[in-house]
Amino acid sequence: MKTVFVQPDRCVGCKQCEVACAVEHSQSKNLYQAVFESPKPKPRIFVGPGIYLNSSFPNKCRHCNPAPCMAVCPTSAIKRTEDNEIVLIDGDKCINCAMCAMVCPFDVIRYYNSIEAIRKRVVALKCDHCVARQQDGLEPACVEVCKVSALLFGDINELAQKASSKLARIVSEIDTAVSKEPLHLPDHLEAWRSWGKSASKLAKK
């Protein structure tokens, strides 16, 4: 199974993944046209702040198994693909009830007018792991634009075999696809992060 791994310590909060995701889910698939589309394409990955300045985290659907969103969907609009275990939302079936948002502990479902629903009505939107791109042999749009390797795309087993490589650390956290182990950061980055930490702690003094 291929999935997107997150290495949070590497995220610099540039939000390029959000832009790429929105463009990928637009009608034109072109940034300069996408911004003029109606409805405006929306990202399904959300780079939010940490509790300290200079920290951030790219938050997206983990395609949980079992998926709580899928269990509570009152119209069976949320389904799992059989082949590559992606949890998908069928916009035509979604009634915009937000049951899924209530039970998603990662808070990655949003509601917007969508080209994927009849009458472009408001429906639940979330990461689809770029199903269409994957069929063309491409990696998800967010991974492609991430220049700091905060987002990686790969096969769990392949990654496990690369135990000696720098990717090894994330393998032990496969269950949630998020690395919890702090990475060793270069000194100048450590300085950048620690400024954020000290500045944020001041507020509570």
Partner: peptide, 11 residues
């Protein structure tokens, strides 16, 4: 105003 999941990722 922008509290979200990501605030807890390093706690």
């Amino acid at each position: 105003p922008n509290f979200c999941y990501t605030h807890i990722h390093d706690t």
